[in-house]
Design a protein around this nucleic acid. Sequence first.
DNA 1: TTCTGCTATATCATTTTGATACATCAAGAA
DNA 2: TTCTTGATGTATCAAAATGATATAGCAGAA
Lengths: 186, 186
Amino acid sequence: MRKSNALELAILGLLQASPLHGYELRKRLSTLLGTLRAISFGALYPALKSLTDAGHIEETADPTAAGPALSGKRARITYSITDDGRLHLADLLSDSGPETWDDEGFGVRFAFFGATKAEVRRRILEGRRSRLAERRATLRESMSATRERLDQYTLALQRHGLDGVENELRWIDDLIAQEDLTTRSS
Amino acid sequence: MRKSNALELAILGLLQASPLHGYELRKRLSTLLGTLRAISFGALYPALKSLTDAGHIEETADPTAAGPALSGKRARITYSITDDGRLHLADLLSDSGPETWDDEGFGVRFAFFGATKAEVRRRILEGRRSRLAERRATLRESMSATRERLDQYTLALQRHGLDGVENELRWIDDLIAQEDLTTRSS
DNA sequence: TTCTGCTATATCATTTTGATACATCAAGAA
DNA sequence: TTCTTGATGTATCAAAATGATATAGCAGAA
């Protein structure tokens, strides 16, 4: 399948902490990833539906609806993770393939590092590092190759892009160093 | 129309420098923006088609095909900007609305600052700055609001996101300062 | 009171992606 | 020599995501 399981993972990971309804889920999704833009409802609801069909999550009654009369108001649909979903989540969290390193998947994957085994965390961080190092090399090469025919603004843009990559590389290196310390001391 | 004119601008901007065929256009597009991922052919070719239909660009004979016999080989299609396209490009480059500040459009817009009037550059940079400042505020707020119930990794992720935004803000501030110097000295 | 904006679910046309197909060519391995 | 790999090059398509919009209750402000 071509479908990215990043969203799937994010939903299962959030629901594992507590049941949520779609709107709240989207808000959490947005803040969870920091800078990444909010996911659209047109992506969220189909994802929820497919997860429900697969049996990983289930719709439950709205807990806040217990008290008031709820006169005509459209009921909130609260989603909970199922046992099957928990198993699937564990599967996703034990994965450390290339799809966990790239831009698309790394953020979400990292957000749930707290529920990820140390060795898996390690492999993912290493993968991310090599991916970034690769990109840095490409960027440097393309910059020195085209330096002459580029104006100052294009150059500044590429320089800024390179800075961003180098910055993330330092971040990853710090994280790896910290992982080393934690692993050794435990 | 909902269609983003960022790609349109990028194509016209590149073709304004020299005629190119699709494949080469895509490569330039990728390096031009630094870190942003390459655009897909499924987006590029329809865009070229729509620009051709609109009369902004035109297909010309492949200049490299002049010499060899070109036996059966699929001909490269070289695109050139038309006079009409140059007018349209000038229009796009004089624009400084919100669509030029956001993540989607800013990179491409900045890449062609060399062909943009100083006052327009200024407005775009200011817009970008306020957009980033806004995001920084949102991020800070959401971080302090959820600090308690977040584990170290989620926190680290958000912190990293905030760092990225702050970094870009400094970059923009530097650029604005430089614009001030250039404008005054000229 | 009306208006704005937030909560909340849902759908849809349009766009974009990622994959794939097809074809040529150069370089290097077998 | 032949064979395979990888780059160049145009093109299309199913699946997925976006951004807009519809619907509707509610709260607070003007």
